Amino acid sequence: MTTHTAEPVEKSVRRPRASLVSLRIVLVLHAALIVAQPILAGYFLSGNVDAMNIHSPIGSSVWLVALIQFVVAAIYWLVGGGRSWPTVLTAVLFVAEFVQLVFGYQRNFAVHIPLGTAIVITVVWTTVWSFRPTARLSRREAKR
């Protein structure tokens, strides 16, 4: 008589794949627009007044990119099995970018410039993180 020992069956770990690719695409777009903003402001301050014709519409619409990023980050988290913090961070970015828009149109540079710096750093950092191997980990793997 042959006895077989039952080997523990490992549950397949759900890792974000398509949702991570989507998040990366939106993050790269978001980062490109955000990084362009201080460059365009620099051109404007150097005397190229036409740079504001590009800076202003990007600033008026970039918070909408953050809204799209929020939806994609939520899908990465809830459907893809990724981590929750990119969704929370994107919600904060959405609010910060809207506040940035308001202070920009008010020409309140005491808030607009430091807030813009924080937004650029946050978006670029999140974009870089999304291409690191840890971004592919599931919630369960990330907690280990």
Rank of each mutant, 00 (worst) to 15 (best):
V120D: 06
H4R: 15
R136T: 15
K11R: 14
T127H: 03
V124W: 05
V62Y: 05
S130L: 02
L40A: 01
V21S: 06
S19N: 10
G116K: 02
R15M: 00
L101E: 11
L137H: 06
R140D: 14
F94V: 08
S138E: 03
V79T: 10
W125K: 13
V88N: 06
A135F: 05
A66L: 06
R136N: 14
S22N: 12
A41H: 01
T122C: 04
M52T: 12
V9S: 12
A51V: 02
Y105S: 05
Y105N: 13
M1D: 13
H4L: 14
L40M: 01
A31Y: 03
F44M: 08
V26F: 00
P8V: 15
S60P: 13
A18M: 10
L137P: 10
W63Q: 05
I34N: 04
L40I: 00
R139G: 14
Y76C: 09
P133K: 08
F44P: 07
Q100V: 10
G80A: 11
A135V: 07
F109S: 12
A135I: 11
K11L: 12
I119N: 02
A32V: 10
V28Y: 09
L115R: 05
E97V: 06
G116S: 08
L78T: 13
A41W: 01
V71S: 08
A91L: 13
P114S: 09
S46R: 06
L29I: 15
R15A: 03
E141M: 04
S130K: 02
L40E: 03
A96D: 08
A36T: 10
E10C: 11
G42R: 04
Y43E: 08
P8A: 15
A118P: 07
A118K: 04
A51T: 01
H4Y: 15
L93N: 03
K11E: 13
A32M: 12
L137E: 09
T5I: 12
A6K: 09
W63N: 03
W129H: 09
S130A: 11
P57W: 06
S84R: 14
L29N: 05
V111I: 14
V72N: 00
D50G: 07
A18W: 07
T126R: 00
R14P: 02
V102I: 15
Q69Y: 13
D50A: 11
R139W: 09
L89A: 15
I121A: 11
R132F: 13
V9P: 00
M52P: 06
W63L: 09
E141I: 10
Q37G: 01
T122V: 08
W63G: 06
H4I: 15
L93S: 07
